[in-house]
Structure formats: C-alpha cells, structure tokens
C-alpha cells in the first residue's frame, strides 16, 4: 500500500496516464531484447525519472528494487553454477568428489543478462505503480473501450480492499487486546472469527453500498467525471526519442557482450 501513496503524491502524477503507460509498455518490450546495455540503460532512466523527477525517496526506491533481487538471485544460482564443466572454460571452479562445479563464461553472461532483463522489466512496472494511481489506469482502460463490467469490478474491488483492510485491522487490534492471539490455538480461533466476520460484513456492505448508489440515481453504470489530462506533445516526443535510442542500442548489442 506504500506504492499507492506514492502514486497519488508523486510529481509525475499530473502527466497524462496514457503517456506514462505507453512509455512503460514500450520500454518493457524493448527490455525483452537480450542486451545488457539497453537493459542497464532502462534501469537507470527509470530510476532517474522516478527519483529525480517523481521525487520518490532514493531509499524507498532501492528497497523496492531489492525485493525482486532476492527472488532473482535464488533462481539465477542454478543457471550461474554448473556441474560437470570442462575446467578449461571455467572462470572459477572447484572439484567436489569427482565432478567439477564452477561458473563458466557462458553461464555468467547468461545469468547476468537474465538478471538485467528482469530488473529492467521490474523497473517498468514500478514506474507505473509509483507514478500512476490505479484509478488513472482504469480511466485509460475505459478510453480503450474495455468492457464496463470488468472496469467497474476492478474499481470496486480496489476500493473495498481498503475498507476491508481497515475493518480487519480494527478487529485484529480488538482481538489482540483481549489476548486473542496469545496462544497458537486461540490465534487460530480468533483468525477464523475475523475471516468469517469479514465475509459477512462484505455481504451486508455490498447491500448498503447498492442502496446508497441507487439513492443517487445509479442505473447500472458507475459513471463519474474523469479528470481531464492534457496530452503533451513534448512528452510524447521525449518518450519516442528515449525509446528509439533504447531500441537501437538493444538491436545493435542484443545477445552478446563485446
């Protein structure tokens, strides 16, 4: 939910969400090209945009980037380290019983490239989540004429998530205050009650929300006045320029490290 807060408060908030989404998506596609240079550049450009222009604190951004690193490292290890390698072509190796275990030049490139590509794609996702509120994303989806029912559902689920979290938290605090989580078995019991209460409450909340909406003239479509963002030629040119450069670099250097 940290991300959500930044999405509303960052300095890139008022840029047309369509422009931001286009930038993120196009850059993501370029990030698929296996080039360490273009991927590295994507990571740097997005970090600069989010931190320098969007004013998201450096520490927060680094912490967010570190999250996928843990998963990545775990999954890259098997690619990086090989068994039964030919000692001649390895960079580092040791012999374990009768087989050689080591890192080859090839496996280093392969895992390095995978790492950079993953981080570049993650950067693109963070760019969107840190600069664009869900509601703006939904507004763009509306413009793209996605089915209303799908969009309205996303909208309500997103909104109810926060209401439910508030409720869950206050119940948890109340249970905890009465030692509801003091032992393992009472904890399980309390948690069960919390969940069943949340389900019942969601149903009655839904009924009430419906009544309130009908009172305000709801007739099956959740219409609100979407904020109007100005499309900026400057931004579009900038996005096109950055992505063209990235694409050229990706195509020229794709696949190998010289």
């Amino acid at each position: 939910m940290l991300l959500d807060g930044f999405a509303y408060s960052n300095r890139l908030r008022n840029i047309h969400p369509g422009e931001k989404m286009a930038f993120s998506l196009i850059t993501m596609v370029i990030g698929f090209f296996p080039s360490i240079y273009s991927c590295g550049l994507i990571i740097l450009i997005i970090a600069a945009a989010v931190i320098l222009i969007g004013k998201v604190p450096v520490k927060t951004y680094l912490r967010l980037m570190l999250l996928p690193v843990f998963f990545l490292v775990a999954s890259l290890l098997p690619i990086l380290i090989n068994t039964g390698v030919n000692p001649d072509s390895t960079l580092i190796y040791f012999i374990f019983f009768k087989s050689t275990i080591g890192i080859t030049y090839n496996s280093l490139i392969k895992s390095g490239l995978l790492f950079m590509r993953s981080m570049a794609l993650v950067s693109c996702l963070y760019f969107i989540s840190l600069t664009t509120p869900i509601l703006d994303i939904i507004a763009v989806m509306k413009k793209l004429k996605l089915p209303d029912i799908l969009i309205d559902l996303m909208f309500l689920v997103y909104r109810q998530l926060f209401v439910m979290m508030d409720t869950a938290e206050s119940i948890y605090v109340a249970q905890n205050a009465r030692l509801g989580y003091a032992t393992f078995s009472s904890g399980i019991n309390s948690l069960g009650r919390l969940v069943s209460y949340l389900i019942i409450k969601s149903c009655s909340d839904a009924q009430r929300l419906y009544t309130a909406l009908v009172s305000r003239g709801y007739e099956g479509e959740l219409k609100v006045l979407e904020p109007s963002y100005n499309t900026s030629i400057k931004n579009i040119i900038l996005i096109a320029a950055i992505d063209t450069v990235l694409l050229i670099i990706a195509l020229k250097t794709g696949g190998t490290i010289k």
Binding site: P133, I134, L135, I138, F155, L156, Y158, R159, R208, L209, A212, L213, R216, G217, Y218, E219, L222, K223, V224, L225, E226, P227
Partner: peptide, 17 residues
C-alpha cells in the same frame, strides 16, 4: 456510500446520473 477513487469523482457520481 463512497465507491469512487477521488473526492471529485465521488461527488460527480450523482450529477453524472
């Protein structure tokens, strides 16, 4: 009662209807 994302959007629901 509140379902919309921003306050402005929420308040606009009735007049939009």
């Amino acid at each position: 009662q509140i379902f919309a994302g921003t306050v402005f959007q929420e308040v606009s629901f009735g007049p939009m209807n």
